[in-house]
Design a protein around this nucleic acid. Sequence first.
DNA 1: AGGGTAAGGTTCTTTTTTGGAACCCGTCAA
DNA 2: TTGACGGGTTCCAAAAAAGAACCTTACCCT
Lengths: 175, 175
Amino acid sequence: MKKADHAEKFCPIARTLAVLEDSWSFLILRNAFLGARRFSDFERQLGLTRHLLSARLGALVEHGILRKTASAQDQRAFDYTLTEKGLALYPVIVSLSEWGRAHTLEGDGPFDYIHATGCGAPMRPQLCCSECGEPIGPHDVSVSASFTLRERLAGLTEEAAERELGYPVPAVESV
Amino acid sequence: MKKADHAEKFCPIARTLAVLEDSWSFLILRNAFLGARRFSDFERQLGLTRHLLSARLGALVEHGILRKTASAQDQRAFDYTLTEKGLALYPVIVSLSEWGRAHTLEGDGPFDYIHATGCGAPMRPQLCCSECGEPIGPHDVSVSASFTLRERLAGLTEEAAERELGYPVPAVESV
DNA sequence: AGGGTAAGGTTCTTTTTTGGAACCCGTCAA
DNA sequence: TTGACGGGTTCCAAAAAAGAACCTTACCCT
């Protein structure tokens, strides 16, 4: 099975990964969040080949994550800026950063300080329940298949559904 | 520059991506969170080649994200289970899922329902400030370089520091 | 005890994707 | 008007992935 086929799975994780093809897209987004806008910014900061940068930026524009506009200052240049859809990837980038900070820096001590503007205190971003605000971990949630998902898998055997989905069919609970 | 070199950058995002080499590792983790444990589980569910699965599982074990233990039932078999370090990747997987749910399913309607066990209501996981609990977006935070980071970059020119880091050197604020 | 099969890999060969460098073309600035 | 810069594209060699075959233990059944 080829990587590209992830786009066809009925799984939001696989589809997101299909859009973000490889690590370079994540790093392009990181730098976009930090203010990079120009082809040459990304090239210099990331050190990836022009060929690949061109392909990745093109795909991100294609998917509506970046917007490509002519630069006001220089007719030769373009600005790549985050769209709303791109800005919505912020939690992905922050989550990667938080894990890396906690598990890959080994004795290098704290790396940065983050302040929420509304609050002022140094903080760590964390995943919470949108309803009660409590932090969410792998043992704190239950997931049930929606009607749409069940409909999509209707008539398939357990094995076929698992292949279609990429993981075992989730339990059908009330809702 | 090669992808592997991301591990040497002093950036928690790049280092995390270096650990999670490509999309397959993310999908392996997704399925591990959903209960997959055996080589054959991952192979059947993901449909990737045995060669690559072997390499990715090996790397995840190597990095302490999965733990490989002999199966109790079958002397031939092994269980790959998430360590604490692996469980800590939960927000990464959830963030990918939430974005994909909101931006890649196009009219396919709701996909699943998530309930926090402590709360009961259907919810969407979101990123919040650990101190005040308010939701965090790209415009709600300011980041400043830690002493460790500044020390690491001391004596380098702006350009050299940018190359070392992979992005522009962050502003030095109080703290 | 012996044959078939399953678990978990490894080893091949062929196809795809990269990395790296060179080239190109329309600006821009001196 | 000459040289450099921005943003690509093209080419080739090198690296990595897909797919299939093979291998080794260890079950399971008779």
